[in-house]
Design a protein around this nucleic acid. Structure first.
Lengths: 151, 151
DNA sequence: CTATGTGCAAATCCTTTGCAATCCA
DNA sequence: TGGATTGCAAAGGATTTGCACATAG
């Protein structure tokens, strides 16, 4: 945790940005909720618990800043608001994917990079230099299979 | 074209919805722009050329309706507005993917379903019944490779 | 005829911005 | 001290909704 914060600070410093207390709070909230997909407002509420004087605008600006440095990523699950997750690169983990249950809305993380071979092919066939990808798979999770038309 | 319109009409009818002239215009615009990724407002402007009295709200409502019936899909390219594309299932084509150039913003369609084998694995390992997927690959298109830090 | 569809304008929701105050190197 | 950071309130932009009228079946 401390290590990651230090690294982020270094990243910011390298571009003349400061790691302020407010920014650190935002970062901590994101780090402590790696498994979640918080919206800006959710981050705001969590930061507010520790630093009640924070403003929503600051949270938005901080998220934007982190996003620009690839410290976090935004994901869109179609609910009309951006959601943020700590970028795996920073921890040495793989980029992950999401399984989204159309019935109960559950989101399952897939912590494997399943696309290596596929990327090679695309990269070759389309003469496209890949830096990143995002895969969402929709369907029914184990709890909901067979329930499709129940309600 | 006529065939597709007929099928959509049948789909709507089956659920007590009518295929009105306005809805048909929206559908035609989408069909004629399969290769594009129109926003609601862009659809509105195109429909307006043929049916000047249409309202933006109607376009939104129609897109929502078509979306609910899986006639079209929404895609999000992170520019803050939903974009719509005619759903490939209806034409027997494969679901396709998008390569997004981070430099010039170009969007390249990949009209192959590259995920068959991968889906099998996920479906098995996560006990998840897949109905659909969405893959976005970010990077640099052939025109932009090597230009990353130019501007 | 009656429910459904539609246009318009107002309302909402998320996000961004302007600006004056504050903070930190 | 001067530029970066912040809070607040206002602005912005996309989408939705309320309501009276128009229309399809």
């Amino acid at each position: 945790m401390r290590r990651v914060i230090g690294e982020v600070e270094k990243k910011l410093r390298a571009h003349e940005y400061k790691m302020t207390p407010k920014r650190e709070h935002v970062l901590r909230v994101l780090l402590e909720n790696k498994d979640k997909h918080l919206s800006a407002e959710e981050v705001y509420n969590l930061v507010k618990q520790r630093s009640p004087d924070v403003g929503l605008a600051t949270v938005y600006r901080t998220l934007e800043l982190f996003s620009n440095f690839n410290i976090i990523h935004t994901v869109d699950f179609g609910d009309g608001r951006k959601r943020f997750e700590f970028g795996a690169e920073n921890t040495g983990e793989h980029r992950h994917h999401h399984l989204i249950c159309r019935h109960c809305g559950r989101i399952i993380e897939v912590n494997e990079d399943l696309l290596g071979e596929l990327e090679e092919r695309v990269s070759r066939d389309y003469d496209f230099s890949i830096s990143d990808h995002e895969l969402k798979i929709y369907g029914l999770c184990c709890k909901c299979t067979g329930k499709r038309d129940e309600e």
